[in-house]
Simulated scan of single mutants.
Amino acid sequence: MAPYIYTKRNGVYIIDLMKTVEQLKSVSNILKNLSAQGKKFLFVGTKRQASENIARVAFECNSFYVNQRWLGGMLTNWKTIKKSLHTLQSFTEDSSNERFKKITKKEVTQFKKRKDRLEKYLGGLKGMTSLPDVVIIVGQSEEMNAVLEAQKLGIPTISVLDTDCNPTLSDFFVVANDDSIKSLEFILNIFLQAILEGKEHQKSLN
């Protein structure tokens, strides 16, 4: 990360914000173009500072997200994850079904426990019928399993990288403080706007 660090003060690395601005412009254009092509995005960020904004931004641009915990094989073992998503869908339908009212209290408790667990970890993937075209990652160090799975499958990644990250593990990136909620909110909002603009462009061509 040395090329993207401006200086070091009191043991703290200061990011070169001019490079961050350049990267934001570049990544925004990439996201806009990919969105205009109808590509599907998966946002990943489970650290506390990122999770809320990850869910919000993904929802607002009709994308998918993982913001609680990355389950091993979410990409590389997609068939199994897809079955779990189907189970979650079935649970959701059953909970509003008359048949649900006829089971015992113990069965209801077990049912809700399984449903809640699936909802917590896979709720952001509901409606995703195939692997994403692009994975957007916040918190590379925490999401290394996601990074490696995307890399193994050849799925491009766009990452927000802090000074303790590895830029060679990301296809495109923006260097920024990933421990700051305001910093992440600012960057993710720019990503959101780029994706929405791409979608609008796609609509105008249809």
Rank of each mutant, 00 (worst) to 15 (best):
A2G: 05
I5Q: 03
Y6M: 07
Y6L: 14
K8P: 02
R9T: 03
R9G: 00
R9P: 01
G11R: 07
I15G: 13
I15K: 12
M18P: 01
Q23H: 08
I30F: 12
N33H: 03
N33M: 05
S35D: 01
K39V: 02
F43R: 02
F43A: 04
V44N: 02
G45A: 04
R48V: 06
R48T: 09
Q49R: 09
N53P: 01
N53L: 10
I54H: 12
V57I: 15
V57R: 05
V57A: 11
A58C: 06
F59H: 07
N62T: 08
N62F: 02
F64Q: 07
F64G: 07
F64N: 05
F64P: 06
Y65F: 15
V66F: 14
N67G: 07
Q68D: 11
M74L: 15
N77M: 14
K83G: 03
Q89P: 01
S90Y: 09
S90L: 04
S96I: 08
F100L: 06
K102W: 09
K102N: 07
I103E: 08
V108Q: 08
T109D: 08
Q110L: 09
Q110N: 11
D116K: 09
L118Q: 01
G123T: 12
L125G: 09
K126V: 12
K126R: 14
G127K: 05
M128N: 08
L131W: 04
P132Q: 00
D133S: 12
V134E: 03
V135Y: 15
I136K: 04
I137Y: 09
G139C: 11
G139M: 06
Q140E: 14
E142I: 14
E143W: 13
E143H: 11
M144T: 06
V147G: 13
L148S: 12
Q151K: 15
I155L: 14
T157S: 14
S159Q: 10
V160M: 12
T163P: 05
T163F: 05
N166F: 15
N166D: 12
T168I: 04
T168V: 05
F173T: 01
F173I: 01
V175H: 04
V175Y: 00
D178N: 15
S180L: 05
L184M: 13
F186C: 03
N189G: 06
L192D: 01
Q193C: 07
I195Y: 06
H201K: 15
Q202E: 01
S204T: 13
N206A: 11
N206R: 12
